[in-house]
């Protein structure tokens, strides 16, 4: 029993740090609240879709930015999609990096766009590993017979 309580404490602490450091915002809480007995894997499913979609968009962005004649509208369309999906799961820092990226698209600044792509990639990798750790902690709590503390 003490083991479960300790694991739950770790989970709450870790989750709190993700909000405090701005990796996640309230939208992620909304996802967790939508999850229920009839859809116990809802959050993991949506986040997995986010990972797949983001990876695809980041690849597309890298390709688009390599082209000789840069199509800024195309780049902006990809960033727009990434901004939307990151805001839908509450990946606040990725969303912020996308907003900055779109500003450089608007003024057609290639250097700025390349820097922003790197920034977005970094933020995406960070939140991906944070979420994976979060899900692992949740699994440990469940495996020990505990319940996930609701936000």
């Amino acid at each position: 029993m003490d083991g479960i309580v300790e694991l739950q404490r770790q989970l709450v602490e870790y989750t709190t740090s993700l909000y405090d450091e701005g990796f996640l915002d309230d939208q992620f809480i909304q996802l967790q609240q939508l999850q229920d007995e009839s859809n116990p894997d809802f959050v993991v499913e949506v986040v997995s879709l986010f990972f797949e979609d983001s990876q695809r968009l980041l690849n597309e962005l890298a390709n688009s930015l390599e082209q000789q004649s840069l199509d800024f509208r195309r780049v902006d369309a990809h960033v727009h999609q990434l901004k939307g999906s990151s805001s839908s799961i509450g990946a606040q820092r990725v969303q912020g990096a996308c907003i900055m990226f779109r500003n450089y698209c608007e003024v057609q600044n290639v250097e700025g766009c390349l820097k922003c792509l790197q920034h977005v990639k970094n933020e995406y990798s960070l939140v991906k590993s944070k979420l994976e750790t979060l899900f692992k902690l949740e699994q440990q709590v469940l495996a020990a017979g505990g319940t996930i503390p609701m936000p």
């Binding site: 996802l31 939508l34 859809n39 809802f42 499913e45 949506v46 879709l49 986010f50 979609d53 999609q81 939307g84 999906s85 839908s88 799961i89």
Partner: peptide
């Protein structure tokens, strides 16, 4: 967006 479809559906 498949993510947003999933979200609005839920």
């Amino acid at each position: 967006s498949i993510i947003d479809r999933k979200l609005i559906e839920m």
